[in-house]
């Protein structure tokens, strides 16, 4: 079964991020760092923190080459994109060359540069052109997905781990891109693996 973890992993593999959400996820679970904590305005006087998992930085792209020790060669986005002019005609995956060719893209009518910052490819951009760091990606998502963000702030989106009662313990929450691949945000299809049977009978369990 696919879990949030694997969903997140998929989204990052596509981006070729070697140290993305997966790492920060485990850190966040064990020792939520204050720097990663977002205080949600609606939560009343929490004694413990609500930590939201964050990607640690800009993704790195897998080149497909191997180092001498057999590890993948990954490069930062800016490695290429500082020397190439941004191409506003690139709207779908088909238009892309090289590394991005395998990316699955299905995210409404936005184009690459709606979110990726053409002035600094190691960052993202909001609709008004202001710069957003990769770890703050939720700010970017929220500008279009207001209702979801609102629900998220009130625990009605995104799930949680830890304590429902913040006076007793901390809570960890998913980041948007833990569950949604930003390039194809629809939640992935899954295969249910567990079916309670109540009790065995000789005759097969009936369906209708």
């Amino acid at each position: 079964m696919l879990t949030t973890v694997t969903a997140a992993a998929i989204s990052y593999l596509l981006l070729g991020n070697g140290h993305g959400a997966d790492d920060s996820l485990s850190t966040a679970r064990t020792e939520p760092r204050p720097s990663e904590t977002t205080d949600l305005p609606s939560v009343v006087s929490p004694k413990f923190a609500v930590s939201i998992r964050k990607p640690q930085g800009p993704p790195r792209v897998i080149t497909g080459l191997k180092n001498a020790d057999g590890t993948e060669v990954t490069i930062a986005c800016v490695t290429c994109h500082t020397t190439r002019p941004p191409n506003h005609n690139n709207r779908t995956v088909k238009d892309l060359d090289e590394f991005h060719g395998g990316t699955v893209f299905s995210h409404g009518s936005v184009s690459c540069l709606s979110c990726h910052n053409e002035r600094d490819y190691d960052t993202l951009r909001l609709a008004d052109g202001s710069r957003v760091e990769f770890p703050d990606v939720m700010k970017l998502c929220a500008q279009c997905h207001g209702p979801q963000m609102k629900a998220y702030e009130h625990g009605a989106h995104g799930g949680m781990n830890g304590y429902w009662d913040l006076t007793r313990g901390p809570r960890t929450k998913n980041n948007c891109i833990d569950c949604h691949n930003p390039h194809a945000p629809q939640f992935p299809k899954m295969r249910p693996t567990f079916k309670p049977k109540d009790r065995f009978l000789e005759q097969p369990r009936t369906k209708h």
């Binding site: 696919l2 799930g159 781990n161 304590y163 009662d165 006076t167």
Partner: peptide
């Protein structure tokens, strides 16, 4: 003890919301 129910933590779509009905600001 303040912790979330197991089914809520396991929910991979975040469809579940749990809390105190008596607390006006609860989720």
């Amino acid at each position: 003890e303040g912790r979330a129910p197991a089914c809520l933590e396991a929910c991979s779509t975040g469809a579940r919301v749990f809390g105190d009905l008596n607390a006006p600001d609860s989720d």
